[in-house]
């Protein structure tokens, strides 16, 4: 990846409290958001992700540290310099924040009016944006007449109006149903590819990160606890928070009947080890389990499994039963070939 579009350098945000100690919303954040990529910040509510996002366009200012956006130090910018930076940074919102008194076209025109564009230039630009987000038929409708997904498309078109280099997304799909969420995420992905726009989004849903983010940062209690390429973070989650976010999003659950019989240690000579095998990258499509059986005579009992795509790479997860007696050798074989294994327990 090339240089960073957004760079947080030792950013701390404190909120002074009357007669008490300060509330520290963000603590010493160091984070680089790569140019042209889709980066996700995931965290629970109150973790500080919203504050972090708002630092990028100066809606929040750091108490200490620097936020560099497209080469500008946003945290230290004057009001008028900040307004110029904001025209290079689009933003979309969970609740859309469209003006009820303006039509779709008029909403999209607003940032251009604010930037002082000539009306003759605004009309064609708005028409082009409306077409890009597929709302030509709704141009003269008011937001109250639109569905949630359509409203967010208006929000996206409005955010793109001033041709920003960075797009901030504040839980943009959290108020939408799963189908609409998928469509909006696809639109964001298309925009990212077509325009080379850097997208920084915050979410509490790991599925959003899985679907469109090439990079991810996990935030917990005002600190970044894990960050990197989505694929790497998903395949080797280090922090408990990351693991808990990943639960149910990647891989598969242990089937119920197995889970009820499982014990932490083998109970007899015939015991089966329940192992989670994670296939990463190029290995995801290799028939490693078949080779384990063919070359080593280990019978593999597949209990559950799925292959999905994360960060545009195949990502497989299987839960298998292996004879406990052959566990060590099998694990070694699989890991030698680039698979990740984790023993979950034993049955029998």
């Amino acid at each position: 990846m090339s240089e960073a579009a957004i760079s947080f350098q030792r950013v701390t945000r404190r909120y002074p409290q009357k007669g008490g100690s300060d509330v520290v919303a963000l603590h010493d954040i160091d984070l680089e958001v790569p140019q042209g990529a889709v980066t996700g910040i995931i965290g629970r509510s109150g973790a500080g992700k919203s504050t972090l996002l708002r630092m990028v366009n100066g809606l929040e200012r750091p108490s200490s540290g620097q936020v560099i956006v497209n080469g500008h130090d946003v945290g230290a910018a004057s009001d008028s310099a900040l307004r110029r930076v904001r025209r290079e940074v689009g933003m979309i919102f969970q609740h859309f924040n469209l003006l009820a008194s303006r039509t779709v076209a008029e909403n999209i025109a607003l940032p251009l009016e604010i930037a002082g564009e000539a009306p003759a230039k605004i009309a064609p630009r708005v028409a082009e944006l409306i077409e890009r987000v597929g709302l030509t038929a709704q141009a003269k409708r008011y937001p109250a007449e639109l569905s949630g997904g359509q409203k967010q498309r208006v929000g996206i078109a409005r955010a793109l109006a001033t041709e920003p280099r960075v797009l901030l997304s504040d839980e943009a799909t959290s108020a939408l149903d799963p189908d609409t969420t998928r469509q909006v995420l696809e639109l964001l992905q298309t925009i990212n590819r077509d325009l080379g726009l850097t997208i920084l989004l915050i979410t509490h849903e790991m599925a959003v990160v899985r679907d469109i983010c090439s990079h991810v940062a996990v935030i917990e209690a005002g600190r970044i606890v894990e960050a990197g390429e989505t694929y790497a973070v998903f395949s080797r989650p280090q922090h408990p928070t990351t693991r808990s976010f990943l639960k149910g999003v990647t891989g598969v659950a242990i089937p119920h009947f197995v889970a009820t019989m499982m014990t932490p240690t083998p109970q007899g000579p015939e015991a089966q080890a329940v192992v989670q095998v994670t296939f990463t990258g190029r290995h995801a499509t290799d028939p490693m389990l078949a080779r384990l059986t063919a070359e080593h005579g280990v019978s593999v009992n597949i209990l559950a499994g799925a292959i999905e795509e994360i960060g545009e790479q195949p990502f497989g997860s299987l839960i298998v039963g292996l004879p406990a007696a052959r566990l060590a050798g099998s694990k070694a074989f699989l890991e030698e070939h680039g698979l990740l294994t984790e023993v979950l327990g034993y049955v029998g």
Binding site: N57, L59, L82, R83, R84, V85, R86, R87, V89, M91, F93, H95, N97, L99, L110, P111, E113, I114, A115, T162, L168
Partner: peptide, 21 residues
């Protein structure tokens, strides 16, 4: 809605533009 003021600030609007528009 305060969200509309935030959206307008994020667009780079001046306080007077926010009042007027």
């Amino acid at each position: 809605d305060a969200g509309l003021i935030e959206a307008a600030r994020a667009m780079g609007a001046t306080p007077l533009q926010i009042v007027r528009k």
